[in-house]
């Protein structure tokens, strides 16, 4: 089963004071908790969080729910908090668009773009 088991790796770093989470693999109902746990380390009120999804090969509604929940938690501490997503895979862009979440997050093609003020 290991060959079929979805895998997700998430790491959290920072760039000039902005937290940057990098995810790779599949974010689904079985793995989304790993993303939730990592993003939980970002304090409420953080003005900007970058989540790099460029190496994510699958993203379902559960993963989207984690991202929305993270944004809401950050905004509980500061209304103008935002989550910037780095997305390069067309299917990930598509799922953000069909759910209307492309308007909720800022979507960028690179981490550099996402970090720009």
């Amino acid at each position: 089963m290991d060959a079929e088991r979805p895998t997700l790796r998430v790491s959290l770093g920072e760039h000039e004071g902005v937290p940057v989470a990098r995810a790779s693999g599949e974010i689904d109902v079985a793995t989304a908790q790993g993303l939730r746990s990592e993003l939980a380390a970002v304090p409420s009120g953080t003005r900007k969080l970058v989540v790099d999804l460029s190496e994510v090969t699958f993203l379902d509604s559960t993963g989207l729910g984690v991202l929305v929940a993270t944004l809401k938690r950050l905004q509980d501490g500061a209304d103008d908090s935002r989550v910037a997503l780095v997305v390069t895979r067309p299917q990930t862009v598509r799922v953000l668009e069909v759910t209307g979440l492309a308007r909720v997050f800022s979507v960028h093609a690179s981490v550099e773009d996402a970090l720009a003020p």
């Binding site: 509604s61 989207l64 729910g65 929305v68 929940a69 944004l71 809401k72 938690r73 759910t99």
Partner: peptide, 10 residues
Amino acid sequence: LLGGLSPGEL
């Protein structure tokens, strides 16, 4: 936690 949005709605 989803801003009132339900998982089923997504």
